[in-house]
Computed example of a mutant assay.
Amino acid sequence: MKKVILLSMVTLAMISCNKETQAVEKVKTAYIDTSKLLEENNEAKDIEEKYKVKSEEMGRELRAEASRFQNEAASFQQNAMAKGQAWAQAKGAELQKREQELGMKQQAMLQTLQQESGKEMDSLVKRIKDYVKDYGKKNGYDYIYGTGDAATVLYAKEAYDITTTISKELNDKYKGSEKKEEAPKEEAKK
């Protein structure tokens, strides 16, 4: 009798373990290297390039102002002795004020560029997250993890890495939206 009870308990344990193993095997997971995904994303590259160009344009204007200021400062030093102490003090205060204004203008320019590019990148990241969510639903994934700078996965088999697939699809989708935007421009030219 004891053997029958023991045998039935072992059988139940094996059956329940088998069910747990089957349940685990049915879970479909993957991961995406989020850093790599953004590095390879064409839209992210375009945003980066756009703000690089914008920064260079704004920087040119600021450098021209700074150059004029430096010329005035050099001229001030040459004329200070000849024009007297009262003139030197007044002109020195004016130059100091302009130097502060240039610094504030540079700081404001950098802040504006950071805010604008930050908004666009945040919007891109949100669209990527939405895309990954839809991709997961469409392809029957139970979990898609993110790795990279803010790692939420410490280890995963490379077979579960779908970064390249997602990156390619996002870039193809972005190319498609670029063509749609270019078509109205070309029609307007005609």
Rank of each mutant, 00 (worst) to 15 (best):
M1R: 15
M1Y: 13
K2Q: 15
K3D: 15
K3T: 13
I5N: 11
L7N: 09
S8N: 08
S8I: 13
T11F: 10
A13F: 10
A13T: 06
C17E: 14
Q22H: 13
A23G: 10
V24G: 14
E25G: 14
V27M: 03
K28T: 04
T29I: 10
A30H: 01
T34W: 15
S35C: 06
L38H: 00
E39S: 09
E40K: 08
N41G: 03
N42S: 14
A44R: 01
K45G: 02
D46T: 01
I47V: 01
V53F: 09
S55C: 08
E56I: 14
R60T: 14
R60S: 13
L62P: 02
E65T: 11
A66K: 09
R68S: 14
F69W: 04
E72S: 06
Q77W: 05
Q77P: 00
Q77V: 06
Q78N: 12
N79W: 12
N79H: 10
A80Q: 03
A80K: 01
M81P: 15
G84E: 01
Q85Y: 06
A86C: 07
W87Y: 04
A88M: 02
G92N: 06
E94W: 04
Q96M: 10
K97I: 11
R98H: 05
Q100H: 06
E101N: 07
E101M: 06
L102P: 00
L102I: 03
G103A: 12
M104R: 13
K105G: 02
K105F: 03
Q106R: 13
Q111H: 08
T112I: 14
L113A: 01
Q114E: 07
Q114D: 07
Q114F: 13
Q115F: 08
Q115I: 05
E116M: 03
D122M: 11
D122T: 10
D122E: 10
S123N: 07
L124K: 02
V125C: 05
V125E: 08
I128D: 00
K129E: 05
Y135S: 03
K138V: 02
K138C: 04
N139P: 07
G140F: 04
G140M: 05
Y141S: 00
Y141W: 04
Y143I: 02
Y145W: 07
T147K: 11
D149F: 15
A151D: 10
V153L: 06
Y155A: 04
A159P: 03
I162E: 02
T163M: 01
S167I: 00
K173S: 11
K173H: 06
Y174N: 02
G176L: 00
G176R: 00
E178A: 14
K180M: 07
E181W: 04
E182I: 12
A183L: 10
K185I: 06
E187H: 11
